[in-house]
Amino acid sequence: MGDMGGHGMGMGGMAPPPAAATHGMGMRRKRYMHMTFYWGNKSEILFTGWPGARGGMYALALVAVFALSLLLEFLGCRRLESCLPASASRRGAAARAAAHALRVGVAYLLMLALMSFNGGVFIVAVAGHAAGFLAFRAQAEDGCKEREVAPAACC
């Protein structure tokens, strides 16, 4: 086979992942990406170096993840769609498309936060979804039972 493109990397020209990241004046600091759940406030959630090892910033990150999951439940509620203009008009269709894009964007952002594999982030995300369900969907589903309608059609 020989030298792959003159780079000597083998494996189809793919370079191995870097073992360290360069920070500052030529100093190298090892960065680890967790692939299993771990506990602790030393983490990176969504942005490089945030929240870091500071407890207060970690608490702020947990509040942000909780708020994202709560917002996602709010945006997923059908009662929100009833507030938007009817989709028959071009303006109504654009408003619904924007609401859908916002909901999907928040869902992807929350998924990326969960990919930190931090146990605290996972717990507050689930708690935010539960609180959002109680706040925005539980009453609608209770109303469905009284009217014998499928829950998906009510909330």
Rank of each mutant, 00 (worst) to 15 (best):
L109Y: 04
A19D: 13
C144T: 01
P18F: 04
H100S: 13
W50H: 02
G55Q: 07
N41S: 12
H129E: 04
V124K: 02
I45T: 08
G120Y: 09
H34V: 03
A135R: 10
G40D: 05
D142I: 00
I123S: 07
G105V: 00
R90M: 11
F37K: 09
G8W: 05
A93E: 05
A93Y: 05
H7A: 07
M25L: 13
A135H: 08
L109K: 04
D142P: 00
E146R: 08
M57W: 09
G49F: 07
F136K: 10
A138N: 06
F136E: 07
M1F: 04
W50K: 05
L75C: 12
L109H: 05
M27P: 11
P16M: 13
Y32F: 13
F37V: 09
P16G: 10
R28H: 09
L80R: 12
G40A: 04
H23M: 15
M57D: 12
E73P: 04
F136Y: 11
L68Q: 11
F117D: 09
R137P: 03
A67Y: 04
L62K: 06
L71K: 02
A113F: 05
C154H: 00
L102M: 09
H100W: 05
K42W: 01
V121C: 10
V106G: 08
S69A: 14
K30P: 00
V149C: 01
W50D: 07
A140M: 02
